[in-house]
Amino acid sequence: MKKNENYNQETTKGMTIVVKKICQFMAPVIFLFGIYITFHGHLTPGGGFTGGVIMASAFILQILSNGSILERLRSEKWRLELTESIAIFCFLTLAVLGLVLTAYSVFFANFLDRGTFGQLVSGGIIPIGNIIIGVEVCAAISSIFIALLIFKDEEDEEESR
């Protein structure tokens, strides 16, 4: 966290170059792992929530290592909130589709073909629900983190005034 006044603002933000590079390598891998957990939710332990948290941790790692700019955080937070709302609305739509599309018309009915047990594409609407929850949880956890960051930055700004 050493600050050198000769550097410009971009490079002094965040941690040292070593941490930044390592995080740059790790973040995509973590993100991919989150996607894996989400997609295999109906086969292995884990699922939308767990995968979403892992995906969000990739973003959080990047923000922590590289530092952040208050204005960008604000616009980012709004987009995350929008993503979250759209995702959760999709989930509701998925549940209502069961009501509309099946002959016996029940809320949350599994209207897709169940497939063979054990394959990646199986289980009807459950993997789709998992993916939607993954997006929702990822957006929600990130936006909580960003909200806390914004709160801290605003406090720092007020103190420095």
């Binding site: 709004w78 929008l82 709302s85 509701l92 549940a95 809320f107």
Partner: peptide, 21 residues
């Protein structure tokens, strides 16, 4: 019966999605 859950929930989410505009 499910309308009691679907209707207020969709009102909440639609409000957030289109709230900006």
């Amino acid at each position: 019966i499910v309308l009691y859950i679907i209707v207020p929930l969709s009102a909440a989410f639609l409000t957030v999605i289109f709230g900006k505009w």
